[in-house]
Design a protein around this nucleic acid. Structure first.
Length: 283
DNA sequence: TCGCAGGTGGTCG
DNA sequence: CGACCACCTGCG
């Protein structure tokens, strides 16, 4: 068990429910159990809005320094980012107030590719089921924690050797083909870290590529545009829903190097908030 | 029963 | 090169 004292701008519900990850489960006590980089842990914080203490169970100080500190993006000063973004407009200020504890996780690249490949034209409960099925059917056994067995996400060289039939039990639908093809390409070429490279992968378009860059390659300026972001940018800023170019320009001009972080505040606000925006905050 | 869900690839004009 | 449109699956 590791304890980290006095974290600011940190809330587990915000972090694990803002749509960036799919493998963390909320427990009855408000803690989260999950797996990343082959380690199973449970995270829990003390109550509080401005400052909390974090407990990571099933981890030691060494794990914290090597894995969790960076995974949770604790080196980054969100206070400063929030201050800067809040100044851009009143809508963003409101979204930040709502999702004050969001942090962009630094996730495993391969896991992020697979996760967002599966996410396309899909809903969150089913995305989670698909990923769990991949792990349980084809992933390496990692260990048992609090009575539950955990399996890692299968590596590219494992998935590349599977057939569509093999993957049928994972209920991936037409995405099964994308996963096999992408696994084969990455086994051969490794993982490139640019938008141009990622969009050469089968099943990876602009939205998924930007999610991969933002959530696993430290590109905080990448601005993934999905239906929710279209919705919120339309409601808040009056940009036409089909005009993704105008949205990208808005982000670049106003949110600058923190476009991706701004996107997360907006996404969480529209998704977890009242699901539509009050007249008063609309610009 | 049918539309829809955190898009993308293929196919037209 | 932009505008459709089909697509696995499960849920309401």
């Amino acid at each position: 068990m590791v304890k980290i004292k006095e974290l600011k701008d940190f809330n587990l519900d915000h972090i694990f429910n803002c749509g960036q990850c799919f493998r963390w489960v909320r427990e009855g006590d408000g803690s989260y159990t999950g797996i990343a980089f082959g380690k199973i842990v449970n995270m829990k914080t003390t109550p509080g809005r401005t400052m909390v203490d974090l407990e990571i169970d099933h981890a030691d100080q060494d794990d914290f320094e090597k894995i969790w500190k960076h995974y949770l993006d604790l080196e980054r000063d969100y206070g400063e980012i929030k201050k800067q973004l809040s100044k851009t407009d009143s809508v963003m200020a409101k979204a930040i107030e709502f999702g004050y504890g969001i942090r962009i996780l630094n996730q495993d690249k391969w896991e992020t590719i697979i996760s967002f490949l599966i996410s396309q034209n899909n809903n969150i409960p089913r995305i989670k089921k698909c990923i769990d099925a991949l792990c349980e059917n084809f992933g390496e056994y990692i260990g048992e924690y609090r009575g539950k067995k955990y399996y890692d996400l299968p590596k590219p060289q494992r998935l590349s050797r599977l057939s569509i039939d093999d993957l049928a039990k994972c209920r991936l639908g037409y995405r099964a083909k994308y996963i096999i093809e992408t696994a084969m390409q990455i086994e051969k070429e490794g993982i490139g870290e640019t938008f141009e490279y990622l969009t050469t992968l089968c099943g990876v378009g602009p939205k998924v590529a930007n999610c991969i860059l933002l959530f696993s390659m430290e590109k905080a300026d990448c601005f993934p545009i999905d239906v929710w972001v279209k919705r919120v940018m339309n409601q808040l800023y009056g940009i036409a829903e089909e005009d993704t170019n105008a949205m990208l320009e808005y982000s670049k001009k106003n949110f600058k190097e923190y476009g991706g972080i701004a996107q997360q505040y907006l996404f969480y606000y529209i998704r977890e908030g009242q699901n539509k925006v009050d007249e008063e905050v609309r610009l």
